[in-house]
Design a protein around this nucleic acid. Structure first.
Lengths: 221, 221
DNA sequence: CGTATAATTGAGATTAGTCAATAACTGTGG
DNA sequence: CCACAGTTATTGACTAATCTCAATTATACG
């Protein structure tokens, strides 16, 4: 339980294949695109530093942010032949590209690597399950609180949480409007659970109550 | 686009490992459990016949149905060491158990199998993306219409769609209440898009308009 | 055929969305 | 370093959608 607000049980497999390419690191500026939806999957990327954003836009303009990617995450993995969403950097970032074909052949040559890949897939599926639960059954306040918990846990920078994404990104990730995101961040602030110093930085003042709020709205007194 | 209401691009890899165990098929009665959350993942199952249901219940009683499983689907795959949800049969069903360890060692021995497993993982991730989009951004009517399209496509039995799951299951899958499911099924019926003969059976009368309704509520005139 | 369960329908409450105004931030150029 | 302009975030008032609670109807099963 509470999976969506916990550290992902140490299962973000730092991905260190031992073939040559893994030493190449690409730097991205803030807002620089990494790939676009429907591009051929030439590379899979391990996030080394910074934070990335996956974006999916529908014909009618409705937008979804399926995920934010943190250091240690693999992006572009599990897409099949073509990427299923756009991906860009939210802040200056570094990624380690892993050519897809190299990865597949390396996996064939090294069973242990294949196992690692399957574990990485399981992690990703696990994350998506947690996110589904948020979208399926949680109130707006619970969604926002869950999100803050997740970012805190994933960035591992203590209780001062940097939010390099816009309110619109958060809303499109959580399935609510920017106004609703804003109102619920304000609500958490009014309750003394978080403190704000500008919109891109949140200090968590009471982690226990924030986690409670992420699980059950009513515990926010 | 429209991925959530299309046949999953022929990518549900019928799973046919060639080691002995794959000949064993287990029959399940309607409502018979296959495994429970937190059980050790001893087997992964390929659905051969019938329909299964994944259920996740939270401490506070909120319930989620992360997925229904159709013939050709792998269930229990991508869970890690322990199952992440309960799984039971919605109707009499047959599954082919694949011992987890056999699978891992077979994957090591046969690179082609490992590749197939990764493709299966990609499929599952793809399905979850589509479902996320539904939960993140769609209205209740769009959700219900999408669901009917998906069941139709996945069962491949033409326009007479059997719904062996309860309204409550559908609601917990789509993130709405049973009343909302019911009201929107009624709405589609009133518009002449579907016909009902009892609650467990829907005839799709106008597939084009149903798909439109799944993508954009306003196209339901 | 009767009873328990499930589904539908209705009325009212609640939540989140929409539209609009204000405030706060960011980045640029003086 | 400050002022300005454009953008983003917050807040408010109102609307619309979904949920909740309750009653009725339909279904399924013994």
């Amino acid at each position: 339980m509470h999976a969506s607000t916990q550290l992902p049980s140490g299962s973000y497999h730092a991905f260190r294949p031992t073939f040559p390419v893994d030493q190449i690191v690409r730097s991205l500026d803030a807002h620089e695109p990494l790939f676009f939806e429907d591009d051929e999957v030439a590379n899979i990327y391990e996030v080394v530093e910074g934070m990335l954003r996956a974006t999916k836009v529908h014909i009618d303009g409705r937008r979804q942010i399926p995920a934010f990617a943190f250091p240690g995450d693999l992006v572009g993995f599990g897409h099949g032949e073509r990427y299923r969403f756009d991906c860009d950097a939210l802040m200056p970032a570094k990624v380690r590209p892993i050519p897809r074909h190299a990865l597949l052949s390396a996996a064939k040559a090294r069973p242990a690597l294949a196992e690692k890949l399957l574990a990485a897939a399981a992690d990703q599926i696990s994350n998506m399950h947690d996110h589904s639960m948020i979208l399926c059954r949680k109130s707006a306040l619970e969604r926002v609180a869950s999100f803050l918990c997740t970012v805190r846990d994933r960035t591992g920078a203590g209780d001062l949480v940097r939010l390099p994404m816009s309110r619109s990104d958060i809303g499109d990730h959580l399935g609510v409007t920017i106004e609703t995101v804003s109102r619920n961040i304000s609500r958490l602030k009014q309750h003394g659970i978080i403190g704000l110093s500008g919109p891109t930085s949140v200090r968590i003042l009471d982690m226990r109550r924030l986690r409670n709020a992420a699980e059950d709205e009513d515990t926010v007194h």
